[in-house]
């Protein structure tokens, strides 16, 4: 079985490490994990190679998660990549906006490894 290649997008390097650790603690079989500090870096990483799953913050400098989602949908070969937003933006309009332009779900910070697993597992299961 192919091990999923995952992109973690967050302007906080600490949060990127925590998300990665949570994924590993969840017992998921993982392939490469690549990090990006904002939407621009994430798009550059995607152009270099496809990912099976993207976890992205919303509130970031340079290019936020909403604009990143919009631009992702214009990249041939990346359109179907599932994106889960990991954000402090609880229940409000920006989350709804992200879901309306293609995000497959969201995880609210603070989060537990179980919450990451619950949201991510079904998306990785499809790859089996």
């Amino acid at each position: 079985m192919k091990r999923p290649r995952i992109l973690i997008v967050d302007d906080s390097s600490v949060m990127r490490k925590i998300v990665e650790r949570s994924l590993r603690q969840a017992g998921l079989e993982l392939g490469d994990i690549v990090e990006a500090g904002n939407g621009i870096e994430a798009l550059a990483a995607i152009r270099e190679g496809a990912f099976d799953l993207i976890l992205s913050d919303i509130n970031m400098p340079a290019m936020d998660g909403i604009e990143f989602l919009r631009q992702l949908s214009t990249i041939e070969g990346a359109k179907g990549t599932p994106v889960v937003m990991v954000t402090t933006e609880g229940s409000e309009s920006r989350v709804v906006e992200a879901l309306s332009i293609g995000a497959k779900g969201y995880i609210r910070k603070p989060f537990t490894p179980d919450q990451i697993k619950e949201r991510v597992s079904p998306l990785l299961e499809v790859l089996r």
Binding site: S12, S13, M15, N59, T88, G90, S91, K109, P110
Partner: peptide
């Protein structure tokens, strides 16, 4: 990692409070 971690805690406290 120290300022980054404190910044992220502040961000989460603010988000959690307003929620």
């Amino acid at each position: 990692d120290v300022p980054d971690a404190i910044a992220e805690v502040c961000n989460m406290v603010a988000g959690n409070f307003k929620s």
